[in-house]
Amino acid sequence: MSAVPVSPAAPVDDGRPKPVPGAARDRRLKLAALRLALLVALLAIWQVASLGAPPFVLPSPMRVWEAWTTLVASPTFWKDLGVTFERIVTGFALAAIFGVVVGLVLGASKTLGEFFEPVLTLITTVSSAIWAIFALIWFGLSNWTTIFVVFMTAMPLILTTVWQGTRTVNADFVELARTFRMSQAQVLTKIYLPTILPLFFSSARLAFGFGARVSLVAETLGASSGVGVRLKQAADLLQTDQVFAWTLTLVALMLALEALVLKPLEARLFRWKKQAEAS
């Protein structure tokens, strides 16, 4: 414990060892080099394996690259990607709103929580493929089929986490808010939401990933456009290089989303957390 400050400039010495900047950079460089080596090795194995198989079973990396450049140049590429992305985001956004609101309500009322618990279990046990079949029956070949499947996959995850999260809210903080005569709405936004946010964030990330994956299954069954439809067409025509090209596109998009949106957002939202937890 450090002494009580005499001058405002007194440094905060928390007793934790300070990282050496040079060592951290060296380690990062080494890791980057290792990752690059892994990529090269995987490409090499892929190349060698493709030599012993016909292209419709395993196309070579070069062939996939060519298929990908043609794919990106094709007029429907961005449209398909956009339409799929829109369905995922809509389904996910609806799931997040519904999950947070209902999760908070169920967390706030024990009676409601106990009453609705079986419904949640029921929804989680039904497979996404079954939801896709129901969606096809109910919504036909429309955007809503995919949106519904994404929603039914992502929503229970978010709802459960938020609901559980309400139980981790520190009663002392709620009492503190009461001594300041805060309104119920203020307690919800100033104590409950910040407590739940880290949990919500990790579950939302998981839910988005699940949603994105099942959206393709839903599209192959119940859509006339989108990435899922193109994948199915390519598979039906034995255009395996096309399947690979789409797959790589999706992987690249998910990685970009993680690195450009989620990681910076997480760092900004949770900079109050101890460094030890983050590393």
Binding site: L176, A177, F180, R181, I191, L197, K273
Partner: peptide, 26 residues
Amino acid sequence: TYMFQEDRLLPWRTATQNVAFGLEAA
């Protein structure tokens, strides 16, 4: 106002934001 046995500082708020908590309600 009421000061508790535990400091009950909200971990996601800076010192400034924690002090401001009392004024936000008002």
